[in-house]
């Protein structure tokens, strides 16, 4: 081979420097590939609906019979219990008619047939949960964990429907706007003496951080929601919620500094330690998380070691639980030469 040919080849070798692949994107690529493969094989990617909404996060296809049942239920409510259903709309958590209110909401969502409408309805429900919490706080009530989780559930449901629309970023921006409004309202309330419960503040901050990060990459949000759903499927909704509440209680999701701190020309920042924490906590292996171990130091340490998003960063694939997947090595996917 001529010298000039060798020189050219050496120059071509410059292109051998490839930045390490983000393990989350490897995982996401594989997930999307498998999902498409199952769809083409004629299978749905949908799991069997369970009692928990977490289990239903990925359910996008409702059967005709389910629709019929839904229609029958709403008809019976309109004919037999219409007044009850209407009256329930102003009920608050703890009221006798409150379960009717949420049932009507479920039916409303169940009747929606396209992702855009589903998203609109889910976002509206999320706002209702916020209004309920606000009224309870105004009245000097302590808002229970169940209601806080219901607020979060409603938001994450809206996020799930949002990422399934044709314009996920547009929908996430809408969620972001609503969260900003809610934050403003809560901060106003704080100034007038209405308490902003720490846990709720942390929840809101976490949700805002998740939405901010998801606008940059909606695919990661889809994966994150799937990780939550898988965890709930494996260990039950109660355990999932236990992990959540322990995290909020101990502030394990906060970074240093004030939550919702006002910075940079009045723009509210959301210093969340890790918006995609489920993905990083669980890594490649679905293992049970011990909520008792989620004090600030323990969890933060775990996150710090969870992975490094920088292209050439270290600790790739280390989920903090000793499961070191290695760079780009999810599911044995480290092929090529």
């Amino acid at each position: 081979m001529n010298n000039w040919e060798n020189e050219i080849k050496q120059k071509l070798e410059k292109l051998d420097a490839i930045p390490e692949r983000n393990p989350l994107r490897v995982q996401s690529a594989k997930k999307n590939f498998l999902s498409e493969m199952h769809q083409l094989a004629g299978e749905t990617t949908v799991s069997v609906p369970g009692k928990s909404w977490w289990n239903q996060l990925n359910i996008k296809k409702e059967t005709f019979s389910m629709k019929l049942i839904t229609i029958a239920t709403i008809l019976s409510l309109l004919l037999g219990g219409g007044i009850t259903a209407v009256g329930a709309q102003d009920s608050l958590p703890g009221d006798l008619l409150y379960p009717v209110k949420t049932l009507v909401e479920d039916i409303e969502l169940g009747l929606a047939t396209d992702p855009e409408t589903e998203f609109d309805i889910a976002l509206n429900h999320a706002f209702k949960r916020f209004e309920e919490i606000q009224i309870l706080l105004d009245e000097g009530e302590v808002v229970g964990e169940a209601h806080l989780l219901a607020w979060q559930e409603a938001f994450q449901r809206a996020l799930q429907y949002g990422v399934n629309t044709e314009d996920p970023i547009g929908k996430l921006l809408m969620v972001q706007q609503q969260l900003k409004y809610q934050e403003e309202m809560m901060n106003k309330g704080k100034q007038t003496g209405v308490p902003f419960q720490n846990q709720f503040e942390r929840m809101m901050n976490y949700q805002a951080g998740l939405v901010d990060a998801s606008i940059e990459n909606p695919e990661l949000l889809a994966s994150e929601l799937e990780f939550m759903a898988n965890y709930s499927n494996q260990y039950g909704e109660e355990k999932l919620e236990n992990v959540w509440m322990n995290m909020y209680m101990f502030g394990a999701l906060d970074t240093e500094g004030e939550v919702g701190e006002v910075q940079n020309q009045g723009e509210v920042q959301h210093p969340v330690e890790d918006p995609f924490m489920w993905m990083h906590l669980l890594g490649n292996h679905l293992t049970e998380i011990d909520p008792a171990g989620l004090d600030q130091g323990g969890t933060t340490g775990g996150f710090q070691n969870s992975y490094n998003d920088q292209p050439n960063g270290g600790n790739q694939g280390d989920n903090g639980n000793g499961n070191n997947g290695g760079s780009g090595g999810n599911d044995g996917g480290n092929g090529g030469k």
Binding site: D16, V26, K30, F33, H38, G333, G336, K337
Partner: peptide
């Protein structure tokens, strides 16, 4: 055969990524 198809993805997705990166220069 889905397991065969999955094995192809596992074996070659990294190589295709590198090929794409070398020519396009963007992750």
């Amino acid at each position: 055969d889905m397991s065969a198809i999955e094995s192809v993805f596992d074996q070659y997705n990294e190589a295709i990524y590198r090929y794409g990166y070398r020519l396009l220069g963007s992750q």
